[in-house]
Amino acid sequence: MSGDVVNLRQARKQKLRRAKEEAADQNRISFGRTKAEKTLTRSLNDMASKKLDQGRREPAPDRTEDE
């Protein structure tokens, strides 16, 4: 029944470092894009929005004035 001795202070610090590194990796993925990539994404989103709006039908006019 001899287990490894673990220093809890060091284990806690190591766990905190791993969590910070994982958060940093996520931020690199999310925010680490070049200006060209951001511009391309923005232009593609604008084009998709315009295409969606082009297919939209206008609402029918009310006929309460003619009747």
Rank of each mutant, 00 (worst) to 15 (best):
R42S: 06
R33N: 15
A23T: 00
N7D: 02
E58M: 13
E65I: 06
K51S: 11
R33Y: 09
T39E: 13
K20C: 02
R42K: 10
R63D: 02
Q26F: 03
R9Y: 15
D25Q: 14
E65P: 13
N27M: 06
T41F: 13
L52P: 02
L44S: 04
L52T: 13
A36S: 14
L44P: 01
A11M: 01
I29W: 03
R18P: 11
R56L: 06
D66C: 08
V6W: 06
G32A: 00
D46K: 15
R28S: 06
T64A: 04
V6K: 05
M47P: 11
E22T: 04
R57G: 08
T34L: 01
D53S: 05
V5N: 09
K35R: 14
K15P: 07
K51I: 09
S30I: 04
S49C: 08
I29C: 02
R17H: 03
K38G: 03
A36P: 09
E21N: 09
E21T: 06
I29P: 03
Q54A: 13
T64V: 07
R17V: 03
L16G: 11
F31W: 05
N45G: 05
L16K: 10
E21A: 08
T41G: 12
S49P: 01
K38H: 11
M1P: 06
Q26D: 06
P61C: 01
L40C: 05
M1F: 03
R28I: 08
Q10D: 10
E58P: 15
R56A: 05
L16I: 13
K13D: 07
K38M: 10
P61I: 04
A36R: 15
R57A: 11
R9H: 13
V6I: 15
T64D: 05
V5K: 10
T39C: 04
D25T: 10
L44N: 10
T64H: 08
T34W: 00
K50A: 12
R9I: 14
R63G: 00
R33P: 08
Q10R: 14
V5I: 12
R18C: 12
D53V: 06
A24G: 03
P59S: 01
M1V: 14
R9V: 15
T34E: 02
A11H: 02
D4C: 07
R57T: 13
Q54S: 12
N45V: 06
L40T: 08
E65W: 05
R42G: 01
K51F: 07
G32R: 00
L44W: 04
N27F: 02
T39R: 14
E22N: 05
L40M: 05
D4N: 12
A11Q: 04
K50F: 14
K13A: 11
A19E: 10
E67A: 02
D66T: 14
F31H: 05
K20F: 02
M1Q: 10
D62A: 09
R9M: 13
Q10V: 11
K35P: 05
R9T: 14
S43E: 13
A11K: 02
L8K: 11
E22P: 04
G3T: 06
T34R: 01
S30K: 05
Q54M: 11
G32N: 01
R33I: 08
I29G: 04
Q54E: 15
M1H: 07
D46C: 08
R18N: 12
P59M: 00
E67S: 04
M1L: 13
L44V: 09
L16P: 09
F31I: 03
D46W: 12
D46V: 12
T41K: 15
I29S: 01
S43D: 10
Q10K: 14
